[in-house]
Simulated assay, not measured.
Amino acid sequence: MNNKLPKSERLHAEKEIKELFNEGSSFFLFPIKVQFFVKKQYEDGTPKVLFSVSKKKIKKAVDRNFIKRRMKEAYRLNKQLLSPLEVNGLVLGLIYVGSVKMEFHKIESKITQILKQLVEKLNSNIPDHE
């Protein structure tokens, strides 16, 4: 599997971001809130992901960017966990709401748990076509 995180896999369109927060579902695994949404009409099978860090909790931009880099790297290394997903058009938002910086291995384990939980949730909501 491709281990890169190109711009085509990152969520940056304002319309899609609004759609994610208005119509999406969410769950929480401290310190990350997960927003997800499955688009009905989607041309590409790769999930799109958004990374965000709360400005209210982490005051310094340097620290926010540091956490975002760690989250991106953890996602990039573990995105193959989404491959058993039977849904196309996944839009995903990972929002860090903790108030302290975490070690990379802790963030990576949380992202891994989140991706596994997301696959379970989305695959259990799909009706069988038989």
Rank of each mutant, 00 (worst) to 15 (best):
S25C: 12
S26Q: 12
F27S: 06
F27M: 14
F28R: 05
L29E: 15
F30G: 09
F30L: 03
F30H: 13
P31Q: 08
P31Y: 03
I32C: 04
I32G: 01
I32W: 02
V34K: 00
V34G: 03
Q35K: 07
Q35G: 00
Q35C: 10
Q35D: 12
F36L: 03
F36S: 01
F37P: 13
F37T: 06
F37K: 13
F37W: 12
V38N: 08
V38K: 12
K39L: 04
K40W: 06
Y42V: 15
D44Y: 15
D44N: 15
D44P: 07
G45K: 08
T46R: 15
T46C: 11
T46K: 14
T46M: 14
T46E: 15
P47F: 05
V49P: 07
L50R: 02
L50E: 02
L50P: 07
F51K: 07
S52L: 12
S52M: 08
S52P: 05
V53A: 15
V53I: 11
S54D: 02
K55W: 10
K55T: 15
K57N: 14
K57P: 01
I58K: 00
K59C: 07
K59H: 11
K59Y: 13
K59F: 08
K60S: 15
K60H: 15
A61V: 10
V62F: 08
V62D: 09
V62C: 12
V62E: 14
V62K: 11
D63V: 11
D63F: 07
D63M: 08
R64E: 10
N65I: 13
N65G: 08
N65D: 04
N65C: 13
F66K: 13
F66S: 08
F66G: 11
F66D: 00
I67R: 12
I67L: 14
K68D: 11
K68I: 14
R69S: 02
R69E: 05
R70T: 00
M71W: 01
K72Q: 06
E73R: 03
E73S: 09
A74Q: 07
R76G: 09
R76V: 11
L77V: 10
L77R: 09
N78Q: 08
N78P: 01
N78L: 02
K79D: 04
Q80F: 05
Q80W: 00
L81S: 11
L82M: 08
S83G: 04
P84N: 04
P84L: 00
L85C: 00
E86R: 12
E86P: 03
E86T: 03
V87C: 00
N88D: 08
N88Q: 10
L90Y: 02
L90A: 04
L90T: 02
V91H: 05
V91D: 01
V91P: 06
L92D: 02
L94I: 05
L94C: 03
L94M: 05
L94A: 05
I95K: 03
I95S: 01
I95E: 03
I95R: 06
I95N: 05
G98K: 10
G98D: 10
G98T: 09
V100A: 00
